[in-house]
Design a binder for these strands. Sequence first.
DNA 1: GTCTATATTACGATAGAC
DNA 2: GTCTATCGTAATATAGAC
Lengths: 196, 196
Amino acid sequence: MTTAKRDTYTPESLLSVAVRVFNDRGYDGTSMEHLSKAAGISKSSIYHHVSGKEELLRRAVSRALDGLFGILDEEHARVGPAAGRLEHVVRRMVEVLIAELPYVTLLLRVRGNTATERWALERRRDFDHRVAELLKAAAAEGDIRDDLDGRLATRLVFGMINSIVEWYRPDGRGAGEREVADAVVRLVFGGLREVR
Amino acid sequence: MTTAKRDTYTPESLLSVAVRVFNDRGYDGTSMEHLSKAAGISKSSIYHHVSGKEELLRRAVSRALDGLFGILDEEHARVGPAAGRLEHVVRRMVEVLIAELPYVTLLLRVRGNTATERWALERRRDFDHRVAELLKAAAAEGDIRDDLDGRLATRLVFGMINSIVEWYRPDGRGAGEREVADAVVRLVFGGLREVR
DNA sequence: GTCTATATTACGATAGAC
DNA sequence: GTCTATCGTAATATAGAC
């Protein structure tokens, strides 16, 4: 994955540059000038590859959403007791989030100012609801403590998982993907407290 | 929902309007024109009260940071076993976050494009470190399970708490402040799993 | 304190040469 | 595919009347 990709840009290779800048400065805080500097080509050259800023955003969040929805199609997310399926989805969410880190990061920061952003928010809500259903099913099967509201618990668990984009960096110095996924699963299902 | 408090604006009353718009559109996505429409006065009138957009941001994040750091000065955060102090801080973080919801929301979304934003990020890091120390102390006292990395666990717990700003609305329809704080404390310390 | 009008700069996007 | 030059718009901020 070390190929110096600067002979000519494709929409894809340009996207990886753009997403990095979007995540650094925020989508609204990024101008086409910023993108052009980061990509090393002029503004008008960018318009040769994509129709504009919003297309870059759409491509990025689509990629993130495809990764997340793909989890729900996996066999372990479809068969067996709901608690086990939920654990699989939680673990895989962490893995997908890390594998597609910049794209998911951008998705999670979308505000809703444009049509593309509102579409992304809607699809995120769909995904959240699918997972909330899973937690509800696990509760109905008696595997989730009954002093927690399902909707509330889902939101809090999503918050924990999604917050990983705020600090995870794939530089080998901090925790690795497996370590993070393990910690999330332990915390979400077992909590901090030492059981004695 | 147009005019409510309109006799004349103070920096404080203007701030509450501005913060609402910042949170809705994002700070970078908010123009002085947006603020002027929301406040019901002209752009230049806003400049009569504050020096510009960035002063509004500074006032808002200062208020949020004061609330959070105030927690660490409370007696229950200073005396007793570390695990108890940690639980107090976790619960109070939820309460402060809800009490100062728009201000904390804005603080948590700051990116770092301006000097004010970088200052806010730095103070947030200070606060995080203070809480991480507390968790470390609780672990040393044997009250935190030893298969969790302290730094990692702190980040995940912060992620869960901070994510509340993304969905909590004080309209009485959803969960109340007490209910959310209880759920967070239960989840953080005990996890989702039914203990049988 | 608030307004209208405007200076000035930055932005997204396009035209047309090479 | 990439460039320079530029258009039209919208942004932050100021000037000066009332």
